[in-house]
């Protein structure tokens, strides 16, 4: 009899936990990165006199936006390094080499959020940014986040810019040569859900 009561109590507790968990999970909206309407581009100084522009063509990601408890929102972005495109095939091939992105060793650049804070017009997201095998904690300001319904597909968009030094991520300064150490990354992305 006592054993039966224990089993019932345990079931009740587990059931309650599961239900609460489901309720909190259902409050977050999951969005997939929309490659068609998004871009991850970058620019870097050349000889200190001009800028070289490029982009990554193969990007994926997921956003989970919790409107009720925004601090529980999460962001994840994965960039395939061998999709680098600077509108010059020879230079792109050079950038894939071990002196630069080392795409065979480090095939992706990743960002994974660890904490999110609501700010006016968007979110301030802190997370782990991994590039070239080195992970650094960075904070980015994502502007946007309002949902837009177009033909039954719900969309949300964010944009951000961040500056980083490639030498902080294990790139050899001397191999960088004429291209500046500092790079500016511009992310404009849309997430979609049905």
């Amino acid at each position: 009899m006592r054993r039966n009561v224990s089993v019932w109590v345990l079931t009740l507790v587990i059931g309650t936990i599961v239900c609460v968990g489901e309720k909190s999970a259902s409050a977050a909206d999951e969005y997939d990165y929309d490659l068609v309407h998004s871009s991850v581009s970058f620019k870097s100084r050349h000889l200190g006199i001009s800028w070289i522009h490029g982009r990554f063509n193969d990007v994926s990601g997921k956003f989970s936006l919790d409107r009720e408890q925004p601090s529980k929102s999460t962001f994840k972005l994965t960039i395939k390094t061998d999709s680098v495109d600077t509108a010059n095939k020879a230079r792109d091939e050079h950038l894939r080499q071990p002196d630069y992105f080392d795409t065979k060793q480090f095939p992706t650049i990743e960002f994974k959020s660890t904490s999110t804070k609501v700010i006016k017009g968007g979110y301030e997201v802190t997370g782990d940014f991994t590039m070239h095998g080195t992970t650094q904690k960075i904070t980015i300001v994502l502007m946007g986040g309002e949902e837009h319904d177009f033909k039954g597909i719900k969309r949300v968009a964010f944009s951000t810019e961040l500056a980083l030094k490639r030498s902080d991520y294990g790139f050899d300064k001397r191999a960088i040569g004429a291209i500046g150490d500092k790079a500016l990354i511009i992310i404009d992305c849309e997430g979609v859900r049905k």
């Binding site: 071990p98 060793q105 294990g170 050899d172």
Partner: peptide, 13 residues
């Protein structure tokens, strides 16, 4: 030569 080697080793070199 200042090859900037990392420990633990990060790449093939």
């Amino acid at each position: 030569l200042s090859l900037h080697l990392a420990w633990p080793p990060a790449n093939s070199l």
